[in-house]
Amino acid sequence: MSTPARPHRSIFEPPAIGQMSLATKIVLYSVLIGWSLFVLFPVYWLLITSFKEATAVNEGPFFIPWVDFQPSLHAWKELFVIDYADTLRAYFNSIIISLAATALSVLVGSMAAYALSRVEYAPNLITILFFVALLALVAVSVGVWGIDWRLAAAVGVALFFFLARAVGNLYQVRLQNGDILFWIISQRILAPIVVVVPIYMMFQSVRMLDTHLAIILTYTVVNMPIVVWLMYDFFNSIPRDLEESAQLDGATMIGIFREIVLPLSRAGLAATTLLVMILSWNEYLLALFLSTSRAQTMPILVAAMNAGERGILWWTMSVAIIVMIIPVVVLAVILQKYISKGLLVGAVKG
């Protein structure tokens, strides 16, 4: 049934009450509280370290501010007053890059997911293989034989358009939507290290290394498979007759997507956005390759604090890590009321 509003219970909300014995309860609570301590203690340590002077760190473990040691703001000052240019630049880089990459991958990914859940495709596998073979040929002729890339590309395109049709008409192995979906999702198996070297060389050849756009595009592609995968399941769970009805009423596809599908997918979009945002915000290896100074992101900045001649400055590093958590928490708080429990399960239920 489409209309009864699905109760949007948040994932952080417990279910109704039941009964269990006292012994079970005691075991249960000790496990949960024990784990909470294990989770929270490192965070607490991080927090107090950010207020410690060098001596308070180096002279052994001090646990409680004002009792064990005198808290000070020197590390915060160092990062935000003295070195503010570096810190803020990395911070804004990170924010711009992860926002843009998240927006792009959620947009492009949901469009693909929606299309895959609603339109029937039947691409010819032979044509695709032909295309890939040509791509490889072009790459070899440019990279190894040193042929001018414009010439190679032109010949490749020409060959594709003249030959692909002929070959494709002779042999047909039709793929289905499921195959396309699997192909897109399987891109996530690729470790960044496999593709990053050519991507690096690609951006180098168009002089785009160390720019926001390069990192944004790369992150978009890396995270898109997750978006497609989560949103495909979500779109599939939206009753089709809503869209069919709108279609009969004369709405265009874009109109239906904007007016009906997107508003109904808020929960799915919120969860996907949060996940992709966290992944882009924390990404390290690709940023390490693609940025050197101007486009440097926070994880790189934090990682680089290791390399100073004064050894690791645990206090400033703690500050940097803490300020990196803040935007994620803010986003999680904003989005969590949209994230319904059903989503995550729908996504993994195969």
Partner: peptide
């Protein structure tokens, strides 16, 4: 747009993957 919606919606994703995933994969193999 309506007639070609299927292609228009899928094309950006496929293009991006071709450029940033498939092509690097081939180049990496080389």
């Amino acid at each position: 747009l309506d007639k070609n919606m299927g292609r228009i919606f899928l094309a950006p994703a496929v293009t991006l993957i071709l450029i940033f995933s498939i092509f690097p994969l081939i180049a990496s193999l080389i």
